[in-house]
Every structure is written in structure tokens, then in C-alpha cells.
């Protein structure tokens, strides 16, 4: 037993170290990449401004300093949660991101709920009746979900449900309710109607994944002895599926779901742009358009950190939940 514990500890320490290294490398990459681009002064200052006004503005923004000094200030600031002021909004970049983050989280969580709520039952059905017509339909939809770019699917959804049928609004967030100082759409009918299309379009990729995993898991587990025994006992099919078969397919599904949460945070960029959803993805695309560096950097650092953290937690949980996972280098 102690041997097992030290192995887990070693695994956790190695995984944490790796996380720190990746974070530092990414922070460096983000800084260098964003600060290698053109001079933001040209974008922000009236072209008719005099040379003196230009220099004055550069001094105010800290852009007259050499690159290494800007980097040192950046690192020192980042450690204290200060990534500079947005050139455009004139408020701290971190604050700006945090203001927009709830909208993105709302969208992401709604997409995950749709993916699980539709994908898993559909996958179970397809796994139980692999050759039925509806199973083939489900699988075709999942293939399309994988191979089509999400912006294309989003456009088609707008075409069909907003333009042709006129059932749902196509852009924006609708009415919001403020709870604890944060705006939420899902608490009003109008907000929910605005949420449906973006969430559905963002959910298609994880939904396709859920369908595949639930289907593969069910097909595998349906042939095992304990499921056969449960059926032979005369248990109702619902009970067999719900209590005996399905729970045993859950470990990989939960893991993938955790990892998808991170991917959705990044994937929401596209959805937010198409549906004009005021989250961090749309913010960063707009900021790239006007070279609002502090916001771009803050977005990337926050998204990358969130992503890395989610992956770390999922990895550690996975190792704890599933005793079969090796803690060493998996590849031997």
C-alpha cells in the first residue's frame, strides 16, 4: 500500500511540474507573439496628431520602453493579476475579461448540458440497436458534427430557425437578469430563446463525441456476463441499462466531458462571433481587430490557464477514480 501511495504522489508531483512548465512556456509564447505585432500607437492615435502628442501617448501606455522591460513589467503584473489597461475600454484588461466571462460560461455550460442530455441517450440507443434506421441516422449526424466546421453549422442553424422559420432570434443575448452583480440570460424566457441556437451549435462537437462514446461503451458492456445475468434475472430493461450497464461506461465519458469543457471555452470564439454573443471570444476577436494588446494577452493567459487547470484536475481525478490507470509513463 505505501508503495502505491508514493506512486500516486510521484505522479501528482510530476503532473504539477509539467503544468507549471507548460504555463510558463505558454505565457512566454503569448507575450512574445502579441508584442511582436505592429505598433498599436498607429491604431489608437489620431493620424493628424503631432509627433509630441504621439510620444506623449506612447509614454502613457508604456510602449516607449524596451521589449525586455515591458516583459519584466508584464510578468510582475501578471503575478499580481494586473495585465494592463485595455487601450480601448480604458479599464483593466483582467476586469474586462472577468466581466465578459459569465456570458461565455453560460453558453459553454448550456452546450455541455445539451451534449450530455441529447448525446448520451442517443448513443445508448444506437449502441443497443446498432443496425436500426434511427441508429444509422444518429451516427450520420455524429459524423457530420465532427467533420463540419462549427461556424458553418451555426450559419445553417440561423438560416433555418431564424431566417426561414423565424422561430428563434439569431443574435445577441436577449433580456438578462442580474444576480450577484452578474447578468444571466437563462433566467428569462427571452434570454433562453436567445441561448438555444448558440448553445446548440456549440454543443454539436461534444454531442458527437458523447454519442460515439456512449454507443461504444454500451456495445461493449452489453456483452459482459453481469449484464447477461441481470437480464436473465428478469430485470426490466430500464433497470438493466440504468443500474447495471450504463454506470460502467461512465469513467471514460466523464473524463472526456471534463476535457471538452476546456475545448469549449476556446471553441466558443467561433460561436460567439456568429451569434454576436457578448462573451470573451467575441471580445478577443474584436480586440485583435484593433490590436488591443492587454486584452488579447489577458484573454490568452486566462483561457490557457483555465484549460491547463481543467486538464490537470481531470487527469488527477481520473487517476483517483480508475484504479487501472498507471501512474508511470504510460508509454513503455
Amino acid at each position: 500500500m505505501p508503495k502505491g501511495v508514493t506512486k500516486i504522489t510521484a505522479f501528482i508531483i510530476r503532473r504539477l511540474l509539467q503544468t507549471v512548465v507548460v504555463l510558463i512556456v505558454m505565457a512566454f509564447g503569448v507575450f512574445v507573439s502579441v508584442y511582436a505585432i505592429g505598433d498599436p500607437v498607429d491604431m489608437l492615435i489620431d493620424p493628424a496628431a503631432t509627433e509630441a502628442q504621439r510620444l506623449e501617448a506612447m509614454r502613457n501606455l508604456g510602449l516607449d520602453r524596451p521589449l525586455w522591460e515591458q516583459f519584466a513589467r508584464f510578468i510582475a503584473g501578471a503575478a499580481q493579476g494586473d495585465l494592463g489597461q485595455s487601450f480601448v475600454y480604458k479599464i483593466p484588461a483582467i476586469e474586462l475579461i472577468l466581466l465578459r466571462l459569465p456570458a461565455t460560461i453560460e453558453l459553454t455550460v448550456a452546450a455541455l448540458i445539451l451534449a450530455v442530455g441529447i448525446g448520451i441517450p442517443a448513443g445508448i440507443l444506437a449502441g443497443l440497436y446498432p443496425s436500426a434506421w434511427f441508429s444509422r441516422t444518429i451516427m450520420s449526424v455524429s459524423i457530420l458534427g465532427f467533420s463540419l466546421p462549427s461556424f458553418w453549422i451555426a450559419l445553417m442553424l440561423i438560416m433555418i430557425f431564424a431566417v426561414a422559420l423565424g422561430w428563434l432570434p439569431s443574435t445577441g443575448r436577449g433580456d438578462v437578469v442580474t444576480v450577484f452583480g452578474v447578468d444571466w440570460s437563462f433566467l428569462t424566457i427571452d434570454g433562453l430563446r436567445h441561448l438555444v441556437l448558440p448553445a446548440l451549435s456549440l454543443s454539436l462537437i461534444p454531442m458527437a463525441l458523447m454519442i460515439r462514446m456512449a454507443r461504444a461503451g454500451m456495445r461493449e458492456v452489453w456483452l459482459t456476463e453481469y449484464v447477461k445475468f441481470a437480464r436473465a434475472k428478469g430485470l426490466s430493461p430500464i433497470r438493466v441499462i440504468g443500474l447495471h450497464a450504463f454506470p460502467n461506461t461512465l469513467i471514460p465519458i466523464i473524463t472526456v466531458l471534463g476535457l471538452e469543457l476546456g475545448s469549449l471555452l476556446a471553441g466558443s470564439i467561433v460561436t460567439e462571433v456568429v451569434f454576436a454573443w457578448p462573451g470573451i471570444g467575441r471580445l478577443v476577436i474584436q480586440s485583435i481587430g484593433v490590436l488591443d494588446r492587454p486584452v488579447i494577452v489577458a484573454y490568452m493567459l486566462i483561457t490557457v490557464s483555465l484549460f491547463i487547470l481543467i486538464n490537470l484536475v481531470v487527469d488527477l481525478l481520473y487517476a483517483v477514480i480508475d484504479p487501472r490507470v498507471g501512474y508511470g509513463d504510460a508509454r513503455k
Binding site: G29, S33, V34, S263, A266, I269, M300, T303, F307
Partner: peptide, 22 residues
């Protein structure tokens, strides 16, 4: 292979974004 694993685990759109901004 560690580098490959880490890179594949990152969302492609995020890597593309960082690169194309630069």
C-alpha cells in the same frame, strides 16, 4: 512525445489564434 501530447491536447483554434495574432 510529451511535447506532441501536450500540443494535441490544446484546442487547435487557440494555437492558431496565438500564432496568427503574432
Amino acid at each position: 512525445m510529451r511535447v506532441v501530447d501536450i500540443q494535441i491536447s490544446f484546442p487547435t483554434i487557440l494555437i492558431a489564434l496565438i500564432l496568427l495574432v503574432a
